[in-house]
Design a protein around this nucleic acid. Structure first.
Lengths: 332, 332
DNA sequence: TTCGTTTGTGTAATCGTTTGCACAACAATA
DNA sequence: TATTGTTGTGCAAACGATTACACAAACGAA
């Protein structure tokens, strides 16, 4: 009930109250273990009365399984990651797995943070952040069943991963824009160091190459609206591009606003602007962005699929590849 | 190094390797404990060599302190919560506290979820969600140092909390809009059942009352853009309001788009639209929303302040109140 | 009746730390 | 030299569960 007692009751104490041994208490809470159903019912009743719940920390120590999952992300504030995390957290919760969030943005010491999480004996690790090297992650979590990485830089490691391939979708988008008469492309990257971003850029660069074109200008932001706005202004002042491919949707919205407000250019007539991610906001009436979109639900299904295989004892490595598709808006 | 050994080395094993007892290993990792500095250095060196880190699960069991913090939120996808969570997670990480995320949206069984988290002996709980009753939270986490609730329905409980008061700011916004000649107000609520939303509505209703006005129409959404859009359309079709106060910024953006696109009404001339939260997106050039804004950083500072007092052993209850201020845009 | 099997329960070891207590070595003091 | 203090270390008992093993009771079959 609304007990205000500070201390939690232990299985040994409950055992005394129910007139059994603590082993029997434990069995009452394990779905398939040899125990009389009368005993179980009685124990569960007494447990409810005294608010007893088995201590997960103690259980984890004994089991060698914590049912904790470390989620290594860049920034929750980024809508794309937020949408994905939301979906993943729900899927984990449905499986009685609890997510521990590690946020790598800003100047936190990422390695130390991962080391800290690893001391909690997490059962799984999902790396979304491209700010940590895969090798560091593998080293630090060497004891955890091999980690899952969300993107894949090369086919180098024997690490389970979920890979995103947008090359085909990027091709379709470039075809359309070139078909509309645009020839002078710029790439507005998420970050300078991100390998994810380098891969994504390559999808579009390859598609351009098939038309005998290449990026005329480059700029680097930080995945934020403000950086998209600011870099687009600079870009459009120093070169005469008529199409900008952006590292994500939020930057694309920033770039669109910059083009419209500062340069007086409209999409798609004066300039084509393309985002990446396919976040919900891109589809809002006020944005209506053309974007290379990923099915986030399918993405997270894939992540969970790998986790479940690991749970089942099949350590893989497993690899699942997903593709991105264009979502057409009025900006390109 | 890049060891691929599955099992983690224990303090007892390391003790053998270093020629000491496991107690000494433990002391080497405790900042202020009686241990010779030569011994400590040697142990730390050997530990690094074999990749030893103390097992936090075992430590938690012994210490009765897990350094885990449960964050009970509605939805990470909601930008306002995402921004706040981001700030909070950083502050926690800086204190070597790890956040466990409980996401209450959708149809997950919130109570069971909280019970699950409570078995992990979390040191603190922060309730952001208004989908769980405070009483449930207090009951389930009765063993944890009293929980922190982000808003406060009434002065009813002896629970530490951080309270948001927007009454003054809401008054300023209403004054401005009434001064601009608007008289017919609607409230587009976040949800029907949320007590947070009821409080927020009251701030504006009280301000209207001072002008001898009241809300002429009401509608209920779910804090999403789509619900803001849809409900605004219905609202504007069935009543002749010239000002809409929305439950959050995202719905306000949806309402603004609906007014513009479906009804052909512009802000602020034809209709005033006001948001709440003060998320970054509200300030984007394409939105430029007038909103009752909260300083999220100060908010999270306050949450951490309470956590730190609890950590220091002062269980309070503590209460901190923050106020909201208008952020003027072009929609009102 | 007697033996083998099934069922339900208790005993005790284990998971990997931390920490109170005891004690040896050594330094400082009288 | 004998007497205190101070340091550094080990021993062993927690912390709160789970589970292999042992065993008694109940049951069916011969």
């Amino acid at each position: 009930m609304s007990g205000t007692n500070r201390r939690r009751i232990t299985s040994k104490e409950l055992a005394k109250l129910a007139g059994v041994s603590s082993a029997t208490i434990s069995r009452a809470f394990s779905p398939d273990s040899r125990i009389g159903s009368a005993t179980r019912d009685r124990i569960l009743a007494v447990a409810r009365e005294y608010g007893y719940q088995p201590n997960a920390i103690a259980r984890s120590l004994n089991n060698q399984r914590s049912r904790l999952v470390a989620l290594v992300v860049n920034a929750i504030g980024n809508p794309c990651e937020a949408e994905e995390q939301q979906l993943l957290v729900h899927r984990l919760q449905a499986r009685q797995l609890l997510p521990i969030l590690l946020c790598c943005a800003d100047h936190s010491d990422r390695l130390q943070l991962m080391r800290l999480a690893s001391t909690y004996q997490v059962d799984h690790v999902v790396i979304f952040s491209d700010m940590v090297s895969m090798q560091d992650a593998v080293d630090i979590f060497h004891t955890t069943r091999p980690i899952i990485v969300s993107f894949e830089p090369l086919e180098n490691e024997d690490v389970s991963n979920v890979r995103i391939d947008g090359s085909v979708g990027a091709g379709e988008i470039i075809d359309k824009i070139v078909g509309d008469g645009k020839r002078r492309f710029a790439y507005l990257a998420g970050t300078k160091s991100s390998w994810i971003d380098k891969l994504r850029r390559k999808w579009f660069a390859d598609a351009l190459a098939r038309h005998g074109l290449a990026f005329e200008a480059e700029a680097f932001g930080d995945y934020s609206y403000d950086s998209g706005f600011k870099e687009a202004v600079l870009l459009l002042h120093r070169s005469k591009v008529d199409a900008i491919i952006c590292g994500n949707d939020v930057m694309a919205i920033g770039a669109r606003d910059a083009a419209r407000r500062v340069l007086g250019k409209n999409t798609p007539e004066d300039i084509a602007i393309v985002g990446q991610d396919g976040i919900a906001m891109a589809g809002w009436d006020c944005n209506d962005l053309t974007t290379l979109s990923l099915d986030h639900a399918a993405f997270m299904d894939a992540v969970v699929e790998v986790i479940e295989r690991h749970e089942a004892g099949d350590e893989g490595p497993h690899s699942i590849t997903l593709t991105c598709t264009p979502r057409w808006g009025s900006t390109a």
